[in-house]
């Protein structure tokens, strides 16, 4: 399966409502794979994917190790493991050290996506209380991918998005309600 584009989304404190709205507005036939990395409580292993599932038209799953990335699917990084994508378009987990106090780390996911999918990546960074995600967005930017950041003033906690906006030339700085229309126009030809 040829992957034309891929969306990675990172968020932390305050991002859950935005993610939920995002997923509820994704059209049923939206084919571009979406990978979500959200910081959560360590031992909340189950229930999160199910909670998201309620509000979306697309399948939300926690990928298996070495599972092939497929269209029309939302993948969710589980607690306590880093989630990476690999060159054969499979997922790979790692329990390496936390990065910026985070595991899963947005930097780890975004950077691997940038390595593998280069300029086909759309990176979206949402509300959060630490600086995870900045290096990942930078990697996406350097490979020619598209960077979208939730406008810091609209974030419950703006540390994460603020850091990204300060350190890299982000292409789109958007309030939550503009994110979906922008993503849809950026992916138009692929679904």
């Amino acid at each position: 399966m040829n992957i034309e584009q891929i969306i990675v989304i990172g968020g932390s404190a305050g991002s859950f409502p935005v993610v939920n709205v995002f997923l509820s507005q994704i059209p049923r036939d939206f084919s571009v794979p979406i990978i979500l990395c959200l910081h959560r409580l360590k031992n909340v292993r189950h229930g999160f994917a199910e909670a998201l599932n309620l509000k979306t038209n697309i399948r939300v799953i926690e990928p298996r190790d070495k599972e092939q990335i497929k269209p029309n699917t939302v993948y969710l990084a589980p607690a306590n493991y880093h989630l990476l994508v690999d060159y054969d378009h499979t997922f790979a987990y790692s329990i390496a050290e936390a990065v910026r106090y985070s595991r899963p780390s947005i930097d780890v996911l975004f950077t691997s996506a940038a390595w593998v999918f280069q300029d086909k990546v759309i990176g979206i960074l949402l509300s959060g209380a630490n600086t995870d995600g900045t290096d990942g967005m930078s990697a996406i930017y350097q490979k020619g991918g598209i960077t979208i950041v939730q406008e810091p003033s609209t974030c419950t906690v703006e540390t994460m998005t603020g850091s990204a906006v300060q350190n890299i030339p982000v292409q789109y700085i958007l309030p939550p309600e503009k994110i979906i229309p922008t993503v849809i126009s950026l992916t138009q030809k692929h679904f």
Binding site: L84, V85, D86, Y87, S94, A96, S112, W115
Partner: peptide, 8 residues
């Protein structure tokens, strides 16, 4: 796995 190895 390549991405992990590269990261290391």
């Amino acid at each position: 796995a390549m991405s992990s190895l590269k990261r290391r």
